[in-house]
Design a protein around this nucleic acid. Sequence first.
DNA 1: TAATCACTTTATAATTATTCTAAACTATAG
DNA 2: CTATAGTTTAGAATAATTATAAAGTGATTA
Lengths: 138, 138
Amino acid sequence: MYLKTNFIEKLRNSGLRPTKQRLKICDVLFNTDKTFHFTINDLSKIIREKVSEKISLATIYNTIHAFEKKGYLKEIAINSSQTYFDTNTSIHHHFFDEKERKLIDLENDEVEPIKIKKIIPGKKIKSVEVLVRVVSKN
Amino acid sequence: MYLKTNFIEKLRNSGLRPTKQRLKICDVLFNTDKTFHFTINDLSKIIREKVSEKISLATIYNTIHAFEKKGYLKEIAINSSQTYFDTNTSIHHHFFDEKERKLIDLENDEVEPIKIKKIIPGKKIKSVEVLVRVVSKN
DNA sequence: TAATCACTTTATAATTATTCTAAACTATAG
DNA sequence: CTATAGTTTAGAATAATTATAAAGTGATTA
Ligand SMILES: [Mn+2]
Ligand SMILES: [Mn+2]
Ligand SMILES: [Zn+2]
Ligand SMILES: [Zn+2]
């Protein structure tokens, strides 16, 4: 559990002004012990339901991208019509449930180390991500 | 090297009528010894340059989706504004060059077998794909 | 061969996620 | 408090993709 004052400091320390809107979004995203995955659409729905004052869609986009740039959120690579974000910023992998269109974390220690035998001259690896698509049994 | 007649048969055997447009797209996609990755935008550019008669964008989309459904193309999961397709339909992985926005194949035997230690109750694995993001060295 | 019909192509409109714009607002340094 | 840079906002713009519906074509049948 974080406190509002913590978010204010966190934002200030990142060079982001702690506005009403950003604090509210912090509350929705980070004031929980569980990390989670969301789309902008999910988030605006949560905000619409939970928050008294409306936050404009442009602000939601701006804020999420600001938080991503500061490393408080990760963008997850799923080819889908919508971009997914993750409040879990550790190096980890994902299951993607094709039916539910939901991501499920697959922690780094739940996958044997991935050994890549090919190299690309002049390039270095920035990240290695596994995406496991799952469907209902039978 | 395929011949046009091969494509005609291939399409007929798939229940797709061998139209002028589909044969031309087959020629662009499959009449080569190397497989490759493309976006719809790439493909329409190639067609615009190489093909005498214009093929409408709607037909390009229709055809690519028809080919994908028949298993002649794979859709590649990159979070990007555009969908990537692959004429290499084998089980394999990818490098993604962030600067060039280009995919590079990483064949299955170039990655040590991936062992996933977590299971999702009631779900079975459909595919396991590794995406290695690369950037320029130094 | 000719008629028929389901399949296909096409121009164009619609949809939708995301980004842009520019004016109003606000946090904060001085 | 004042000035200023940063932020929010409604609404417009952009762009990939999908839908529509009319015209065209391939294949089947008589
Ligand atoms: Mn982003
Ligand atoms: Mn598709
Ligand atoms: Zn995650
Ligand atoms: Zn490939």
